Amino acid sequence: MKALFIGGTGTISSAISSLAIEKGVELTLLTRSGNGPEGAERLICDVNDEDRAFSVLKGRSFDVVVDFVAFRPEQVERDIRLFQERTGQYIFISSASTYQKPLAHPVITESTPLYNPYWQYARDKIACETLLMAAYRSTAFPVTIVRPSHTYGDCSVPVAIHGAQGSWQVLARMLEGKPVIVHGDGLSLWTFTHNTDFARGFYGLMGNPHAIGEAVHITSDETLTWNAAFAAIGRALGVEPILQHISSDLLSALRPELLGTLLGDKANSVIFDNSKIKRLVPGFFATVRFDEGVRRTVEYVRSHPECQKADPEFDAWCDRVIKAYSSCVRSF
């Protein structure tokens, strides 16, 4: 199998790239940096420079093309022009955040409506999906849409609220005995998927004729409350986390960039029905339990200083919010 990955070095894409090479895929990465795993051909090009990309790809064709870095409709329109005659399958990485918010039913299938008034990122992904399915129906453009949910790997512990530098500062607060903010009462349900599990499901879709014209999500079957997730992170760190519960509405008002990631995503209870990916990829199921996966992630982050990015601005914001919230509660 010959595959082209646009991107290929992120949390999701790096795991898929590694598995594809292990499986013997003839893998080419189109990236701006030229980074990527050993065993992959690297084409250094910014795909947003369409003329340059067309020149770099001239004379090439692939069994599968995957775009990990398309977020807006104009980007998938470009991909349709670039790959209409170059590939037997084009896989678009969408997002489970596209599913209806607020949910009418907590169990999500691929037929759950796509609607998210809280998050522009999700609305852009919905618009991309709409364009791609229209191209499939009108010109047989061979699209497969994949919707990841909260997928994590070795380099960053998955949390709901963090600053611009990622999740390390949340872990640092736990290690220092400081309270960490948990949205709502911490009892909403969430699903975390390890990137190696996601990669196995994804690989089964590559070159799969039954996946053409389909949309499918790939997640773990394990569902946890956020309180349970933080407890697992605390155990991996060897501490008992102090959780400060604050409503998602208030947090979004105090930090507007949380509106999409909370009200448009993580504040909702979700349970994924993975029947479709299991039908398309017989034998697939997630094997990495969250407490096991997050222990591995914590060990990696603690042994790699480059993953420990301090975020004093976010730390100070947490202190201010918790102090103000506690003062308000005491005043009543």
Rank of each mutant, 00 (worst) to 15 (best):
G34T: 03
G213K: 00
I108S: 03
S94E: 02
C318V: 05
F332N: 13
L224V: 02
F62H: 09
S33I: 08
R279A: 14
F5R: 00
R302E: 08
N116T: 10
Y90C: 10
F71S: 02
F71Q: 05
G7Y: 02
V170G: 07
L171E: 00
V64P: 00
R330H: 14
A20H: 01
N195A: 13
G238A: 01
I212V: 15
P241L: 06
K2C: 11
Y325A: 02
S149F: 13
V56N: 04
T31S: 11
E22R: 10
R32Y: 05
L224Y: 02
R78E: 13
A70N: 05
G264P: 06
A96D: 04
I277Y: 02
L280A: 02
I233V: 14
N227G: 09
F54V: 12
V146M: 03
L103A: 12
C45A: 12
T261L: 09
Y90V: 04
Y118K: 12
R32F: 04
S149D: 15
T109A: 08
V288E: 05
G36K: 02
P256A: 06
L27T: 01
A236N: 01
V47N: 01
T98L: 14
D221Y: 11
K58S: 13
G10N: 07
Q308Y: 01
G153W: 08
A160S: 14
I91S: 00
M174D: 01
F68A: 09
V216A: 05
S220P: 06
G24R: 02
F230H: 15
Y325Q: 01
E77N: 12
K309G: 08
I233S: 07
G213P: 10
N268P: 10
M174Q: 06
F332W: 10
R60K: 15
D124T: 08
F5C: 03
P209A: 03
D49W: 08
V64H: 09
I322E: 00
F230A: 14
L29Q: 07
D315G: 11
S303E: 13
A286P: 04
V170R: 11
P113H: 08
A53P: 02
R147L: 01
L57M: 05
I145Q: 00
A135N: 07
C318P: 00
A199G: 05
S248D: 07
V56A: 11
A232G: 10
P117T: 10
P312I: 00
A15W: 13
V281F: 00
F5W: 04
L263I: 06
E38K: 15
A253F: 12
A40S: 03
E176G: 04
M133I: 12
